[in-house]
Amino acid sequence: MVIVNTIREKTIVKPGGVVEIRSGELPVGVTVEVTIVVERDNTQSVPRSLINFIGSAKGCFLSPREADEFIRGERDAWD
């Protein structure tokens, strides 16, 4: 039988992306699973270039060649 104990800790990420957790509830040598949830401020959006949106919507094509191939395929289907 496996007993699961959950420890929730908040910490600050140190330079180099280092996260450190210390707890007296962590026995030496035991295997643990760590899940990291990053909190972000909703008012700070990640800047995205318009080029990131090209071809991302349904029915859009990544290149003129891809659009031409689709149109040719549709035309061939008419015959």
Score class of each variant (00 low, 15 high):
2 V>E: 13
2 V>G: 04
3 I>K: 09
4 V>G: 00
4 V>C: 01
5 N>K: 15
6 T>N: 15
6 T>P: 01
7 I>G: 02
9 E>M: 02
9 E>Y: 12
10 K>Y: 08
10 K>P: 00
10 K>V: 10
12 I>W: 05
13 V>D: 02
13 V>R: 13
14 K>N: 09
14 K>L: 14
15 P>Q: 11
16 G>Y: 04
16 G>V: 01
16 G>F: 04
17 G>E: 09
17 G>D: 10
19 V>D: 00
20 E>V: 14
20 E>T: 15
21 I>Q: 03
21 I>P: 02
23 S>P: 03
24 G>F: 02
25 E>Y: 04
25 E>H: 09
25 E>I: 01
25 E>S: 12
27 P>C: 00
27 P>G: 04
30 V>S: 09
32 V>Y: 05
32 V>T: 09
33 E>K: 12
35 T>A: 11
36 I>G: 00
37 V>M: 08
38 V>K: 13
40 R>I: 06
40 R>M: 08
44 Q>N: 11
45 S>H: 12
46 V>A: 06
48 R>Y: 06
48 R>M: 11
49 S>N: 14
49 S>G: 07
50 L>P: 06
50 L>D: 12
51 I>M: 04
53 F>A: 10
53 F>Y: 10
54 I>A: 08
55 G>T: 06
55 G>C: 05
55 G>Q: 03
56 S>M: 07
56 S>R: 13
57 A>E: 07
57 A>P: 00
57 A>N: 11
60 C>Q: 12
61 F>H: 06
61 F>K: 00
61 F>E: 01
61 F>V: 04
62 L>F: 01
63 S>Y: 03
64 P>R: 09
64 P>C: 01
65 R>C: 01
66 E>F: 03
67 A>H: 09
68 D>Y: 14
68 D>N: 09
68 D>M: 13
70 F>G: 00
71 I>T: 08
72 R>T: 08
72 R>W: 04
72 R>A: 12
73 G>F: 01
74 E>L: 09
75 R>W: 05
75 R>D: 10
77 A>M: 07
78 W>K: 12
78 W>V: 06
79 D>C: 04
79 D>I: 07
